[in-house]
């Protein structure tokens, strides 16, 4: 079963670049990615650029609207994701708890829809 682990956090909180804490965070991500790769559950994953770079597109009555910013202004922003192939939700949740951002942000776990 494939699960998407969506990584949310408040961009203005959490470790700042060029601090020792930030280095630790990056090291944590390195180790986590290594772990999911070696255990064979990794499908894909990527960090996203800051929410300030987001653009939202909508098509209404045939015309395209382009808006600066994310779809919804929220306290925590989507910062990246992993797609993991796990046996069940319990396994996916244990991996989610190991994602470094889980310590200051939150990880949403969603099964990926399968068309049969």
């Amino acid at each position: 079963m494939q699960f998407m682990l969506l990584i949310y956090s408040d961009e203005s909180a959490g470790p700042k670049p060029e601090t020792p804490e930030f280095g630790e965070l990056m090291q944590g991500y390195g180790a986590f990615t290594e772990e999911v790769k070696t255990s064979g559950v990794m499908e894909s994953g990527a960090p996203l650029q800051a929410v300030a770079t987001a653009t939202t597109v909508r098509v209404r009555n045939g015309s395209t609207e382009i808006i600066d910013g994310p779809f919804a202004e929220t306290k925590e922003q989507l910062g990246g994701f992993y797609i993991l192939d796990c046996e069940d939700l319990d396994t996916a949740l244990s991996y989610a708890a190991k994602i470094p951002t889980a310590k200051h942000g939150s990880i949403e776990v969603r099964p990926i829809m399968v068309f049969e």
């Binding site: 069940d88 319990d90 996916a92 099964p111």
Partner: peptide
Amino acid sequence: KGAGIPYVVPAPHL
């Protein structure tokens, strides 16, 4: 069913 909640006795650490 949808979320993949397992039908098992949880692992010892859980």
